[in-house]
């Protein structure tokens, strides 16, 4: 059974602002599905529609087999959500907040208290459980927020940029936790700006750009769709790149290429074997190669190919693999 299905889902805030512009989703149970895109691409709006916080302008969606418009209260009972902005009541302690959260999901009192204690332990906050949240660090709040999303043991969990702003150690811990839960059958719908996160966690990925899904598939399939390897050529100038482009497009084995200023990125199956003939061909055409790098294709390459621009995360070093 599909965990999440959407058909022609649209959200327009005005004539000009088309946040989500007709997307289709089919996410099987037990999958970690990644929604990759820049800020403003429509990821969060999609999550808000699927979790009943926002009504779609048109289209339909089902979560856990339940229509989001017809039975929003049933959806809320069955899904866990951690939004991008950690929304917590800072006056309460971690234990109070989690217990209240469980009770508001109709979990009986004694069970709620036990679960809160267990989850605090799992997310590494047992020692701080009885301190007010105002003394928690950003990473601690993020972990508590994740615990809030899981306190009623949902089978489908939406995480909207769950590791944005976290330090690498906390990020790694969050990833491990998601992986463990996923092994237990929990479906995750994860939005992220981090390619590494998508590559590591996700079974399938959709790349979102300007409200539309522009590429979809498993990370491996997406990468192989553009060629296994990537050769980045630094040429003398943008004119040189323009001159070289027709030649490079005809070059044997090249699946696709991207020109960005004086830089040309070639995607091909066997990059190592292509390097020498490539340099020779360019030399014969009087195109000077100033720099050449061979590497495996990454999701960033997929993103570039699909959207025409790199994924900018605003968090240095995390966007690229």
């Amino acid at each position: 059974m599909a965990a999440i299905v959407a058909r022609a889902l649209v959200k327009h805030f005005s004539q000009e602002i088309k946040a989500v512009d007709g997307i289709d989703l089919d996410i099987p149970e037990g999958q970690v599905f990644g929604f990759l895109g820049q800020n403003g691409s429509g990821k969060t709006t999609t999550v808000r529609m699927l979790t009943t916080l926002l009504k779609p302008t048109s289209g339909s969606a089902e979560v856990g087999g339940v229509d989001v418009l017809a039975h929003p209260e049933r959806i809320r009972r069955s899904v866990g959500v951690a939004m991008q902005e950690v929304g917590l009541d800072e006056v309460q302690t971690g234990r109070e907040l989690l217990t209240l959260q469980a009770r508001l999901f109709d979990v009986p009192g004694p069970v709620a208290r036990t679960r809160a204690g267990n989850l605090l332990d799992v997310v590494g906050l047992a020692g701080d459980a009885d301190r007010p949240l105002k003394g928690y660090s950003g990473g601690m709040k993020r972990r508590l927020d994740l615990a809030c999303a899981l306190i009623h043991e949902p089978r489908i969990v939406f995480l909207d940029e769950p590791t944005t702003g976290l330090d690498p150690i906390t990020r790694e811990a969050m990833w491990r936790y998601v992986e463990d839960l996923n092994k237990g059958g929990v479906t995750f719908f994860l939005t992220t700006q981090y390619l590494e996160e998508a590559d590591r966690l996700c079974d399938d990925i959709a790349i979102m750009d300007r409200g539309q899904i522009v590429a979809k598939g498993s990370p491996e399939a997406l990468k192989s769709s553009i060629g296994t390897d990537a050769i980045t050529l630094g040429l003398g100038s943008a004119e040189d790149a323009g001159l070289a482009e027709p030649l490079l497009r005809r070059f044997e084995g090249v699946d696709s290429l991207q020109v960005q200023g004086a830089q040309v990125i070639l995607y091909l199956k066997n990059g190592a074997a292509a390097v020498a003939p490539l340099v020779l061909a360019l030399a014969e055409a009087n195109v000077k190669v100033e720099d050449l790098r061979l590497r495996q294709a990454t999701l960033d390459d997929v993103f570039l190919r699909a959207t025409g621009h790199h994924l900018e995360t605003g968090d240095q070093g995390q966007g690229r693999l």
């Binding site: 009972r77 959500v81 508001l104 999901f105 109709d106 009623h152």
Partner: peptide
Amino acid sequence: GYFEKLLLTS
């Protein structure tokens, strides 16, 4: 954002 978290409960 806590109000939204409450809206997301049942």
